Computed example of a mutant assay.
Amino acid sequence: MSALLADVSDLSFANAEDTLPRLADGLRAGQVVPYLGPQLLSSDNPDLPSTPEALAKFLESKVALPARARGNVWAAAQYIESTRHRATVTTLMAEAFSVPAKPSGLHRMLASLNLPLIVDSWYDGAMRSALQATQGWGEIQGITRAGIGEDQWYRFYDRSGEETEAAAAAGWKTILYKPNGGIVPARNFLITDADYVEVLTEIDIQTPIPDMVKDRRSDRGFVFLGCRFHDQLLRTYARQIMKRSTGPHYAILDPADTLTRNEVRFLAAQEIVPISASVDTAAEIMLEVA
């Protein structure tokens, strides 16, 4: 924990043993929205990229990148799109996530709770796979607007993976919201700088966020699981998706990670209470309660 606490003197950490059971109760009551990040994949899916940096490294292994694009997944994808066309980006992303993601115990627990809303910010299909054991849910995915000739920001998919309409989605008990798209069911990926420039011009007024997501977040808090906020884009998306929700908000942070100064400022500014625990430890405690 010392490495984590070295840069977080301005933050007050909640006690994991006391707070995580209460969070599990809040999830079970439908009052907490889980916001899932890529680090949920790390232990159960070693063959899949579980950080933006790992995904950037994968892209670099496939295409020679200039120095300015190395290590930054969005810049890397933008360079590939600019030099080799969008189809190459989609093909490489599909290859990176070609191994079907195995749901963890935490994924399965969340799936069993009939939650009104689950936000999944990474590209894998683990949460969708876990939800297959249940009924009455569907998915909303953010989409790239590159070359589609449509004035829309997202698409709706039912449990079987078929595209559907907003009218059908309104009746879902659980909405799985993937703002950055995902490998399944339709290989939608927001990944390039250009993708996000377009979204970020509108996201402050919330246009790219579906109305039913706004409705379901309004009287709830968020818990961030497997997330980091060391990149401005990650912080912007988290801030905009939790906007106008009532709170309280929590983030489960791995004690092995050292937070950046920007992460500390973000957590403080958004009044997100940090909990120092690995994802596996947090899942174990919450599963005992649930």
Rank of each mutant, 00 (worst) to 15 (best):
A168F: 03
L59H: 04
S112D: 08
L5Y: 12
A96N: 05
V289S: 12
E81I: 01
S160I: 06
G136W: 04
S2M: 08
F97P: 05
R128L: 00
A96T: 11
A96F: 08
A282G: 15
R228Q: 11
S245G: 15
P52T: 10
G26D: 13
S2C: 00
G247C: 11
V89D: 09
D44P: 02
S43K: 12
A268C: 04
Y196G: 05
N114H: 09
T192V: 07
A277E: 15
F229R: 05
G138P: 00
E95D: 13
C227A: 11
Q141V: 02
I191R: 05
D280I: 11
V199A: 03
A238Q: 07
L113H: 02
D219T: 13
P255G: 12
I285N: 08
Y237C: 03
R244F: 13
L23P: 05
E17C: 00
D10Y: 00
W137K: 03
E17K: 10
D195L: 05
R216Q: 09
G37H: 07
I143V: 14
F13G: 00
R22F: 08
Y177K: 07
R70P: 03
V184E: 15
M242P: 03
G161C: 02
P103H: 05
L176Y: 04
Q39F: 08
P52H: 04
L40H: 07
K243S: 12
I191H: 01
P34H: 06
L11T: 06
I285M: 13
L200K: 04
A130M: 03
N180Y: 09
R68N: 09
L233A: 02
A77G: 14
V32N: 02
D120A: 13
V73Q: 10
I275D: 06
R70H: 07
D257H: 13
K102A: 14
V264N: 07
D257K: 09
G221R: 05
I252A: 12
A194M: 06
A29D: 13
A186K: 09
E284Q: 14
T281N: 15
S278L: 06
P103E: 03
E288I: 02
A56N: 04
R22V: 09
I118L: 07
W122A: 14
Y177E: 05
D193N: 10
S129F: 02
E165D: 14
E95G: 11
F97L: 06
P49M: 10
R217S: 13
L110K: 01
